[in-house]
Structures are given as C-alpha cells and as structure tokens.
Computed example of a mutant assay.
Amino acid sequence: MTWLKDVLGTEKAIIAMCHLMALPGDPYFDSEKGMDYVVEMARKDLKALQDGGVDAVMFSNEFSLPYLTEVKTETVAAMARIVGELKSDIEIPFGVNVLWDAKKSLDLAAATGALFVREIFTGVYASDFGLWNTNVGETVRHQQRIGAGHVKLLFNIVPEAAKYVADRDIESVAKSTVFNNRPDALCVSGLTAGAQTDSQILKRVKESVPETVVLANTGVRRENLVEQLSIADGAVVGTAFKVDGKFENHVDQARVKAFMDDVKAFRQR
C-alpha cells in the first residue's frame, strides 16, 4: 500500500488539474475582467471536478504562458488569493503547482495548506524556456525552513518541452532520483499538456523503481486509462476533463464523471 491511500483516499488515484487563467503580470491576463473573474472561473472548474468525482485536485497557473523558471511574487500572491477564496469550497485533498518554480510551489503550499506539490526538482535541461537548471538540495532545505516538511513532493522527471542536457536513459534518471532525493512520487509526462505519456517509458520507470509511486502525468484519457493505470499508480489529468478535450477550455463535468466511472470500474477488477 502506498501513501496515496492515506493522503488521497485511494490507490490508483486521479489528481485533477484546476488550471487557473492568466494572472496579473502574465501576458494574457485580462485586466478588464480582473482577478474576480479568474477566481470565479476557478470556482466553476473546481465544482465541476469535485461533482464529477475526482480523488484530488491540483491548482496550477497553467495559463501563465510562456512559463518562468523563477516566478514573480505577483503570481504567487494571486494564486494564494484564489486558493484562499476557494478554501471553503474544497472538499477533497488538494495540491499546488507554481510553474516552473519549485520553491515558490512550496511557499504556496505552506500558505494554503496544500498536501502535495508537483515540480521539476532535479536535472538540467535544454528547454523552450532556455537552459533550465535546478537545485534540489536547496529546495528541500527551503521546504524544511518554512515548515512544509509534510508536503508530498511529486518529481516530474520527464519535463514537458524539455530534454536532459546529459544523455541519460530514463531508468538511470529514475533510479538516481529515488536514491538521492527520496521523492514521494515520480511523474512521467508526454511532450506537452494533453500529450499521451508513452506507456513503454511509464513501464520502464515503474519497473526500475517498483517501491516508488509513479504517476502518468499527461494525456490520460478514457481510451487509454486502463492501459496507463495498469502500469502507473495513478494519474494527473487536466485536458481530458475539458470541454471537447481541448486544453484551452474549461472543465466539462459530464466528461469528468464518465472518466471517473471508468476509473472506478477499473479499480473493482
């Protein structure tokens, strides 16, 4: 049994993404509609996800495109406001993800009471955002300094839109990440949000670190959930829950319910 049962309430857990609209300072922030509109859209998506039956939810600044690797204070402040205003509506375990800044994600978790964060904690990458470096030793020390030691760390080891600078196979990455950093979970992704995680890569990661929670991080849909959940311990799902399955749309509760009905049937096998 993994920590998923204790923290999220079930094995083969589905963590749903609540994608926040562009925030103050972001290129696509709608200053006319303002933050009140962003909060209300997040509330609408949260309700659709919860009513659809997901196991947990993760709030992320998904539309802060293009992303920063050192996120500005105004972004974290805006996210804290949103989660704070929604706190009384949150009925399931929740996490946060400040793209792509591990320390800021932990700051937000400490401020809001989030139970987990997903981030790029390790590695050096050539990415769409430039040369992308990390400092996991400093990050986990920061986690302890701010009293967030209980927050589960979900390590994304196949970053979207990026590739390791060194030529390392995925088994080596998984094994060394687990040995050196003791992550609570490893997340395996496709190229972008909504892109299917390669089942063979997922299988190779799980087989190389069988005692560690491994999550399919992108592209799980009704059509492939049996295949993916047969390998992974759970999944992070965003785009599949959107209207017409499109990344830029808001959540469709009917799609969420249909997906979760299939997941529950899979769990009972």
Rank of each mutant, 00 (worst) to 15 (best):
M1F: 13
T2R: 07
K5H: 12
G9N: 07
I14D: 04
C18S: 08
M21R: 11
M21Q: 13
D30N: 09
D30W: 05
S31G: 01
M35H: 05
D36P: 06
V38K: 02
E40W: 07
M41V: 14
K44E: 14
K44H: 14
K47V: 15
V54F: 01
V54N: 06
V54S: 06
V57R: 00
F59P: 05
K72Q: 09
T73S: 12
E74V: 12
V76H: 00
A78C: 08
M79R: 05
V83G: 00
E85N: 02
I90L: 05
V96T: 10
A102P: 14
A111M: 11
V117D: 12
F121W: 04
T122Y: 08
G123H: 05
V124W: 03
Y125V: 11
S127W: 09
L131C: 10
N135L: 01
V136H: 04
H142I: 15
Q144S: 15
G147R: 10
V151C: 03
F155A: 02
P159A: 04
K163T: 15
A166S: 14
A166R: 09
D169Q: 10
V173L: 01
A174G: 02
T177W: 03
V178H: 01
R182T: 04
R182G: 04
P183T: 02
D184W: 09
V188Q: 02
V188N: 05
T192E: 10
G194I: 13
D198H: 13
S199G: 12
K203Y: 08
R204V: 02
K206A: 00
E207S: 00
E207C: 01
S208I: 03
V209Q: 01
V209N: 03
N217Q: 04
V220M: 12
Q228P: 04
S230V: 06
G234R: 02
V237G: 04
A240S: 02
K242M: 05
V243H: 09
K257R: 14
A258I: 11
M260Y: 08
D262F: 00
A265Y: 03
